[in-house]
């Protein structure tokens, strides 16, 4: 196991623990926005898609990268916008009066 891979494994395991800690405190009233916000966050694959797009040279590779960029952009933009729309609707008694 190379040292790079070892560090990545550390990061992954620790991030899982932090994730569990952070998420388990989200109340059920916010479960839909939680899901759609995390949905948007996994749109981070757009970073991977762009990295691939910069490395491919063949036409086939470019098409695959373009497909990945399209899907990931859809995921990022759609995810954050939908979450914002949902959360914009949440009102407490005080604020609605």
């Amino acid at each position: 196991m190379g040292s790079g891979l070892l560090v990545e494994t550390y990061v992954f395991v620790l991030a899982v623990f932090v994730g569990f800690q952070l998420i388990s405190k989200v109340p059920s009233v916010l479960h839909t926005p939680l899901m759609s916000a995390t949905n948007a966050i996994h749109g981070i694959v757009l970073v991977a898609a762009l990295t691939l797009a910069a490395s491919v040279r063949t036409p086939g590779g470019i098409w695959v990268a373009a497909g990945a960029v399209f899907l990931a952009t859809l995921n990022v933009v759609g995810g954050f916008v939908v979450t914002d729309r949902i959360l914009g609707m949440f009102r407490s008694t005080k604020r609605s009066e």
Binding site: E8, F12, A15, V16, M35, I41, T51
Partner: peptide
Amino acid sequence: LQNQVLIIAGALVGASG
């Protein structure tokens, strides 16, 4: 891709789901 931000964000979503 040896990219830490993908690992962290992915782990966060994995935990949430």
